[in-house]
Write a protein that binds this DNA or RNA. Structure first.
Length: 847
DNA sequence: GACCTGCTGCGGATTG
């Protein structure tokens, strides 16, 4: 005997002519039996229905006779997604089902886009289902009498949980949930509220569920539902026709444009993913220049383009009006674009999961094949193509590590609650302790935070602006309207640099570029942005005004952003591939194509096997070069380079400059380096004294100061300004820097400062990975080769070397002069030609 | 001739 609700679901699938997948049945069973848990399903697999339909069935079962007239029960389902854009898509799908089965419900969304009138209406009459973002959830918690809003809540769904996990937005979700569970009508604690996460496949699914549900969730009420859909992937590398002439270094990859355009021509709709916004612009421009027939059926999509422009592109993709879109990861999530049948990835995707995610953008029908091409931007990167295929075959996925004890997020949350109805310390402490993130929060730490929001802590007590929260009969409350307003304005954990808006003189916005780029422009200059040729007119009030230009050439802006290292999973498979090469047992076409390159590497130096660690040493007019190849990603290399430089300098004082990429790093000095002696020293690669040596070798103070900027924003120590009137970056930097100094000097045990140091260690240095890499190297056989000239492994690193960082305080002028004097012409002349870089241009420090 | 790495994500008041 099946229930009325289940009948309705089945009937709905039948009418749609859809088959109900096994995982959808399993999901319905779990839901209807009252479980909470995690649904592991890829986008476009019908996961929304998998959760929404059982929820409806459950409701129908409670009112089997008259469900079509039931309404106004209050908010029953809260659906949280990380993306504003997704809320409307999902709302449409849900509303359709309700209409189909005759349920008189309105599905609403509440995000920053929601009009003030709708937000006010929402307070008066609650919808049965509400779709929102983590930030909006916290804004709701900052409203007076917010418990009323959630008093009937039955289920919370966190969509794309893998996207939030591992970020401070994820911690925000954990805290929000810890509050909602206490508001459940079905009993205190985890009495009845069901919580479901939806996640794509990641390396730590079990942990993802654990983090979502918190520490006190009864294990017997947790289910993991997996959509074992067999998605067919067809992955191919684009192999340069003449590998011996292909660049040894470089990141743009435009040389392979003809091959890519052949793929585009063969396909219906292609997404070309690039790794940076600037690279998107360059590729778009290159296509327009060389294949003008694509004008009109080609578009671009990245994070600095105006929203309106991006919405248009998304619509046009749906409407099958576009043949090719050049984009960054701004298109690798969310909305499903059915017409897309081919994905091209230009340059290393840096991780297996990211590549899968992007490949999955093509062939978005059940049963369709996802077709993805990998385009290397330099020769050695082709080996990553082989590694990617192997990793996918083996099902190797990166994990998303949950963030722990993020005090800035907690402070923000405490003030949020104080702004609305206020909180009591003991109660809040136990709620917060129930989250995964704050399971280890000590009471004295919590008290320190309480002291901080009420008295400004030890150091800021005399400044009124830090005394936000007052205590009335044990209730922590914000009474100042100004403090409350400012706080609501700064809820959220995403911080970003100030940018300059680009607008037509005639009105209408194109997007944003960075201050530094605008500073390079003179009125009348042409630059390319958003795929158009623009003439720069002037800057006024954070806006650059432009008009259309007919110039064919122009500067292309670049943006400063995060630098993702090669993931440790992909690095490991990359090393496996290299081992195959060294043993001559390579099978992959990528590796076979690279044979000439590897032969040269073997001839000039050595091809390391799994148990070997290669170090190359050579002298040029620039000085003594040492090259190390851990193949562990650039962040680890950066840390390891500084560490080894420090350890060498203990044997013989020297000043080093450092260059690195995802495969290895270089140490360069004008002194003779006693490398053999250093290698004899057992402690050279040792993890003993690692933290101390890191402290001495790197400017950890500066690294922490950088992290502290964001922490201070999130923790509400600085006010970033009213909408439309941002506080100047310079001022913000000065004030966070000052705060950092003050804490460092007078309150070294300050929790936010401690957090800054921890974040720097974990994210800037990837300390955990660095440790593992050193341990691996200490078991390997060191192969030290003296080489005559840069090898295929060395060259890409050395090309980047002009952006190298000085470990000593040698001034810039001296450096440039020395470079100009010593630039080793005879060494570089023989090398394959790559892009030109102006000597003397330095890249900003990484931290 | 220039450009030649560096992603993504959200939210928002009041006064005059």
């Amino acid at each position: 005997m099946i229930s009325k609700g289940e009948q309705v679901i089945r009937e709905w699938y039948r009418q749609k002519n859809w088959t109900q997948f096994a995982f959808q049945k399993e999901m319905a069973d779990a839901y209807l039996s009252g479980f909470s848990g995690l649904l592991n399903a890829p986008t476009g697999s019908g996961k929304t229905f998998a959760l929404f339909l059982p929820f409806l069935a459950d409701f129908i079962n409670k009112h089997p006779e008259n469900y079509t007239t039931q309404k106004n029960n209050g908010l029953l389902m809260l659906w949280i997604t990380p993306l504003r854009a997704l809320t409307n898509d999902i709302k449409k799908a849900m509303q359709e089902v309700c209409n189909d089965i005759g349920l008189p419900w309105t599905i609403l969304t509440r995000t920053g886009d929601t009009s003030a009138a709708d937000k006010a209406a929402l307070k008066k009459k609650l919808p049965e289902v509400l779709l929102t973002t983590p930030e909006s959830l916290h804004l709701m918690l900052a409203q007076k009498e917010y418990p009323k809003m959630f008093q009937n809540l039955q289920v919370v769904v966190i969509d794309e949980w893998h996207e939030l996990l591992g970020t401070k937005r994820g911690v925000q979700v954990e805290l929000g949930l810890s509050k909602l569970k206490t508001r459940s009508p079905l009993g205190e604690g985890w009495g009845g509220l069901r919580i479901w996460g939806i996640s794509a496949t990641i390396g730590n699914l079990e942990q993802a569920a654990e983090v979502l549900l918190g520490n006190d969730f009864p294990a017997e009420r947790i289910k993991m539902v997996r959509a074992n859909l067999d998605k067919k992937l067809d992955i191919r590398s684009v192999i340069p026709e003449n590998i011996e002439n292909y660049s040894w270094a470089g990141h743009i990859g435009v040389k392979l444009l003809p091959q890519v355009m052949e793929i585009v021509a063969r396909s219906k709709t292609t997404l070309i993913f690039t790794n940076t916004r600037s690279q998107s612009e360059i590729w778009y421009h290159a296509i327009l220049d060389n294949y003008p027939e694509y004008a009109g059926v080609m578009a671009m999509h990245h994070g600095s383009l105006d929203n309106e422009l991006r919405n248009w592109v998304e619509q046009a993709l749906h409407a099958e009006a576009l043949k090719v879109v050049v984009c960054t990861s701004s298109l690798d999530l969310g909305v499903d674009f059915r017409p897309v049948d081919t994905v091209v990835q230009v340059g290393s995707p840096k991780g297996v999961a990211r590549f899968m995610q992007r490949a999955g953008r093509s062939g978005h029908h059940p049963g369709a094949v996802s077709r993805a091409y990998f385009v290397p931007t330099h020769s050695l990167e082709l080996l990553e193509g082989a590694a990617l295929k192997q990793a996918i075959k083996q099902g190797v996925f990166e994990s998303r590590d949950p963030m722990l004890l993020t005090m800035d997020v907690l402070i923000q949350y405490m003030v949020t609650l104080a702004v609305s109805d206020g909180f009591r310390a003991d109660e809040l402490y136990s709620e917060v302790k129930s989250t995964f993130a704050f399971a280890d929060l000590r009471r004295d730490e919590f008290n320190q935070l309480l002291d901080f929001i009420t008295n400004g802590g030890k150091t800021l007590a005399q400044y009124d602006e830090f005394l936000k929260v007052e205590i009335e009969n044990g209730l922590y409350k914000v009474n100042s309207r100004r403090v409350a307003m400012r706080h609501r304005l700064s809820i959220g954990t995403i911080t970003s640099e100030l940018s300059i808006r680009v607008k037509w003189l005639s009105g209408g916005s194109l997007g944003t570029i960075e201050e530094g780029f605008v500073a390079k422009l003179k009125p009348g200059n042409t630059f390319w942005f958003a795929g158009r040729s623009l003439e720069f007119i002037r800057v006024k009030e954070m806006t650059a005004y432009v008009k259309k230009s007919n110039a064919k050439k122009g500067l292309i802006p670049s943006w400063a952003g995060g630098r993702m290292p090669l993931s440790s999973q992909l690095s490991a498979v990359f090393r496996d591939k290299l081992d195959e090469v060294a043993h001559g047992i390579e099978q992959d076409i990528e590796v076979k194509a690279l044979k000439p390159l590897f032969d040269l590497q073997a001839q000039l130096s050595h091809l390391p096997q799994r148990h070997e660690f290669l170090i190359e040493s050579f002298k040029s007019r620039e000085g003594h070069h040492l090259l190390f190849y851990p193949f562990e990603g650039r962040l680890v290399h950066e840390g390891m380079a500084s560490l080894l430089a420090y350890r060498i300098s203990k044997i013989k004082p020297a000043s080093f400059s450092i260059a690195m990429n995802d495969y290895g790093f270089e140490l360069l000095t004008d002194e003779d380096i006693p490398i053999e002696k250093a290698l004899e020293d057992v402690a050279f690669f040792s993890i003993e004294n690692l933290l101390d040596d890191i402290q001495s070798s790197l400017n950890s103070n500066e690294m922490a100061r950088r992290r502290f900027r964001d922490i201070a924003h999130i923790g509400g120590l600085v006010f970033t300004g009213y909408p439309g009137q941002p506080v100047k970056n310079k001022h913000l930097q000065a004030s966070t820097s000052l705060l950092f100094e003050v804490f460092n000097e007078y309150e070294p045990d300050n929790l936010l400062v401690r957090q800054a140091y921890n974040e720097a260690l974990a994210f800037q240095l990837e300390e955990f990975r660095l440790r593992a890499a050193l341990q691996r190297i200490s078991t390997q056989t060191i192969v030290l080769k003296t080489i005559e000239r840069p090898t295929p492994f060395a060259f890409p690193i050395m090309v980047d070397s002009l952006g190298r960082e000085r470990l000593t305080t040698e001034t810039m002028e001296e450096r440039i002069a020395k470079l100009a004097r010593n630039y080793a012409v005879d060494d570089t002349e023989k090398l394959p030609k790559t892009r030109n870089r102006k000597p003397g241009i330095t890249r900003k420090k990484g931290f």
